[in-house]
Structures are given as structure tokens and as C-alpha cells.
């Protein structure tokens, strides 16, 4: 299979390619009115690429991600993952997701929450794999804790661990650290980078945080406010791991300024609505 050769060629990176062509999404509202969330988005994401969708609130970036996750259908255009409708990847249990709402089952322990992907895929629960990921996200000793006993940051660690449990071909992250404080967020960003480098799979991260996007992504796609359109695509030049020496470099700051200016211009200096 050619895919195998390709994976070998780019060393460790792997995953499903994504293709968006002329994608639009219109939500019907009451009294025949409608809201256009996304308009004419075309984008190709390579296998093993880490892509950030950056934009102000309400720019349709989550809508785009939800379409890749098969949680929504585009009203125009096509979304394909691995050359097929996104639904097929999800049905094969090859998709990993983490949302801002951690979506943990409140009645289940950390261990059982992490076993969920195996259970819904009707695969035997791999205890060693769960233990390995609990260790990876630094939650050793919390296996039996219930989500409400954990801090917000710890819950998101569980959520991230769950998303990569079955070594998915595509990882979709919708502001996974959006509700966390700045310090926890920075630490989890560094951890996400480390986790991703251990298995660089195609990843799409939705964020409104410029530094987060530049720290993690290979490319940053800036979206304009409603209706969401691609306004700029930036390739991030820094080598990984991107540690303090990178984030404190003049070049990093220049890129942060450039993207922040772009966002400010897009929102016209007006606060975007939540």
C-alpha cells in the first residue's frame, strides 16, 4: 500500500489526510432567516500535519472542526477524511476528540473513562495502554478518582489521554484548554506538544489563543468572523520541541504580533460576541 511507504518516508508522522472543498454551513433560524457560519472554505491537511484553526469567537472554527468530526454536515461543498466522508473514520473508531467541555462521564472513574473508547469499539480493554497514558499525562495515583474530584486541568488531561487511547488516525481538539487558567494552560500546551511528538498524527486544533497556535501547529489558518472564511495561512517555521528559547525569541514574538494584528483587523477592533 502506498500509504505505508509514505508513512515510512516521513519517519514517525502518520494519520489521515483531510480535504475541504468549497465548504459552507448555513444554519436555518426561525421565521425563515438563517445564519451563515462558514463560507467557501478550501483547505488540504497533510497526513501527520498539526494544523491550528485560529479566529475570534463565532468565526465558525468549531463548526469546521465539527464537520471533520462528522458531528455536522456541510450545507455546501465537501469534507473528506482519508478520501471518504468523515463518518466512516468515526465508525471505524479511528477518530480522537477532545472538547473544551471535557465530556467525561461523571459516574465513572478516571480508569473507566479511559476504557470507554475500547468499550464502544468492542475491543478488549488494554489495561497496559491505559496505565501508559495515565502515566503520560501525569495522573498516576488518580485511576480511581471520579471527575468531580479532579481539578479542571486534570480533567482535561484525562480528556486528552482518552482522545489518543486508540492511536487514532485523526485528532480533533476544540479549545481543549479554553476554560483553564493561563498557568495551567501553558503547562498543558507543553505536555500536548510532548504527547503529540511521541506520535505525530494528523491533528486539528481550534483555538483563539495566538501563542497556543504558534507553539503547537505546523500551519496556522486564520479565519474571519461570521461567515468564517480563510483570511490567512501561516506556516510556522520553528523546530520542535518548541521550548522557552523559541517562545522567547524575537521571531516568535514577531509572529505573535503579526497574527494578533490580523485578528484585530478582522474584528475591526470591536469585541466579538461570544
Amino acid at each position: 500500500m502506498s500509504q505505508v511507504a509514505q508513512v515510512a518516508a516521513v519517519a514517525a508522522s502518520r494519520g489521515a489526510p483531510i480535504s475541504l472543498a468549497g465548504v459552507g454551513k448555513v444554519y436555518p433560524m426561525r421565521r425563515g432567516r438563517s445564519v451563515e457560519a462558514v463560507r467557501d472554505v478550501g483547505l488540504d491537511i497533510a497526513p501527520g500535519e498539526f494544523l491550528a484553526l485560529l479566529g475570534p469567537s463565532g468565526c465558525g472554527k468549531s463548526t469546521l472542526l465539527r464537520m471533520m468530526a462528522s458531528l455536522e454536515e456541510p450545507t455546501s461543498g465537501t469534507v473528506t477524511v482519508d478520501g471518504a466522508p468523515p463518518r466512516e473514520l468515526a465508525a471505524r473508531h479511528r477518530l480522537g476528540v477532545a472538547f473544551q467541555d471535557n465530556a467525561l462521564l461523571p459516574w465513572s472513574s478516571v480508569y473507566h473513562n479511559l476504557a470507554l473508547p475500547f468499550r464502544v469499539a468492542h475491543r478488549p480493554v488494554d489495561r497496559a495502554r491505559i496505565a501508559e497514558l495515565i502515566e503520560l499525562v501525569g495522573l498516576k495515583g488518580f485511576e480511581d478518582a471520579r471527575p468531580r474530584q479532579l481539578s479542571g486541568g486534570m480533567r482535561q488531561r484525562v480528556s486528552i489521554a482518552r482522545s489518543i487511547m486508540l492511536e487514532p488516525d485523526l485528532l480533533l481538539l476544540d479549545e481543549p484548554f479554553g476554560a483553564l487558567d493561563a498557568v495551567t494552560r501553558r503547562r498543558l500546551n507543553a505536555e500536548l506538544q510532548r504527547i503529540w511528538m511521541a506520535d505525530p498524527v494528523t491533528t486539528v486544533l481550534v483555538t483563539h489563543d495566538v501563542e497556543e497556535a504558534l507553539l503547537l501547529a505546523d500551519r496556522v489558518v486564520v479565519l474571519s468572523p461570521r461567515p468564517g472564511r480563510i483570511s490567512k495561512i501561516v506556516t510556522v517555521p520553528f523546530d520542535r520541541p518548541r521550548a522557552l528559547d523559541v517562545t522567547r525569541s524575537a521571531r516568535f514574538h514577531a509572529m505573535v504580533d503579526e497574527l494578533t494584528a490580523e485578528l484585530d483587523a478582522l474584528t475591526g477592533g470591536v469585541d466579538s460576541d461570544e
Partner: peptide, 17 residues
């Protein structure tokens, strides 16, 4: 919760699961 329902859908869970 809608997030849990979304999660199940994204994990490819059958309706009975």
C-alpha cells in the same frame, strides 16, 4: 450532556452502546 453525546458519536459508538 451534549458534549458526551458528541463524544460517543465521534468515537463511533453504536446507538445501543
Amino acid at each position: 450532556s451534549p458534549a458526551v453525546a458528541d463524544l460517543c458519536a465521534a468515537l463511533g459508538a453504536a446507538r445501543r452502546d
